[in-house]
């Protein structure tokens, strides 16, 4: 589709941006002129704007993000460090995969978030409990995607590299890594979402600070403007990570676009 001189991408962008702007404008309009506004039930974009200013100027927003971000980084890093090697070994050694696959699949299938209260009780409301929870949720996508990635390696390519005189090292860096990396990045995308769940569950349950706590607290206080801003911030964070990783996926492996979706 083509509209005058604009490229397809910019048309797409304008349509999307227009729809989002329109959404907020209609929202504001409806609550100002059409419906009676009940501040205990919903908020308006103008009030969210004020709340944003408040949260930023008071420094609360940054503090909460920092508090929540720290265990996220630790838990996520641990998930990478444990998950990827485990997945690679499972992909490489058939017997290890046989032994671990059903066990891990069962764990992956069970709603481990439900363990949050136990972990909080055992490890406390601070960084430790949250980190372990995030690790527990985020590790599985790394394991299974690294596993699938290694298994997807084309044996023909291995033979090609061997026949051209490639050494073990070359196999790892020229064949296995490039084939596996896109899977791992795709796994990271799933893990991000689960990690955010981990933070929020941890903070819903028992915490006195952090963005998840702020969300609940503003809700309880009926400060819906602030609450909506917290929701919006979390959405933006999630989108930045997800879209960023999708871009990374395409940059790393431009030859495969749709498959990992």
């Amino acid at each position: 589709m083509r509209f005058g001189v604009l490229s397809e991408r910019s048309v797409r962008f304008l349509l999307g941006a227009g729809a989002v702007t329109g959404f907020f404008l209609v929202w504001e309009f409806l609550l100002t002129f059409v419906f009676t506004f009940n501040p205990f039930f919903i908020t308006k974009p103008s009030l969210m704007w004020d709340a944003t200013g408040d949260l930023i100027l008071s420094g609360e927003l940054w503090k909460d993000l920092y508090i929540s971000g720290t265990p996220f980084v630790f838990g996520f890093a641990a998930a990478v460090v444990v998950g990827i090697p485990l997945g690679v070994v499972m992909g490489w050694r058939r017997r290890v995969a046989f032994a671990l696959d059903p066990f891990l699949t069962a764990l992956y299938a069970s709603p481990l978030v439900a363990l949050a209260p136990l972990l909080i009780v055992m490890f406390g409301v601070g960084i430790k409990g949250k980190t372990i929870l995030i690790f527990l949720l985020a590790v599985f996508p790394f394991i299974f995607n690294a596993f699938a990635g290694v298994r997807s390696v084309d044996t023909l390519l291995i033979n090609v590299v061997r026949s051209l005189g490639g050494k073990e090292r070359d196999l790892y860096f020229k064949v296995i890594l490039p084939s596996t990396l896109p899977y791992i990045v795709a796994g990271a995308r799933i893990a991000i979402g689960r990690g955010i769940v981990g933070i929020i569950v941890g903070e819903f349950y028992a915490a006195s600070e952090g963005i998840g706590h702020a969300l609940i607290w503003f809700g309880d206080m009926y400060q819906l403007g602030h609450m909506f801003v917290c929701i919006l911030v979390l959405m933006i964070v999630a989108v930045i990570f997800t879209v960023g990783l999708r871009k990374a996926e395409l940059a790393i492996a431009p030859w495969r676009t749709q498959e990992t979706r």
């Binding site: 979402g193 689960r194 955010i196 769940v197 929020i200 569950v201 819903f204 969300l215 609940i216 809700g219 609450m227 929701i231 979390l234 959405m235 999630a238 989108v239 990570f241 997800t242 879209v243």
Partner: peptide, 9 residues
Amino acid sequence: ATPRLVFLP
């Protein structure tokens, strides 16, 4: 992209 949990409150 956003976990549903965010909307729960």
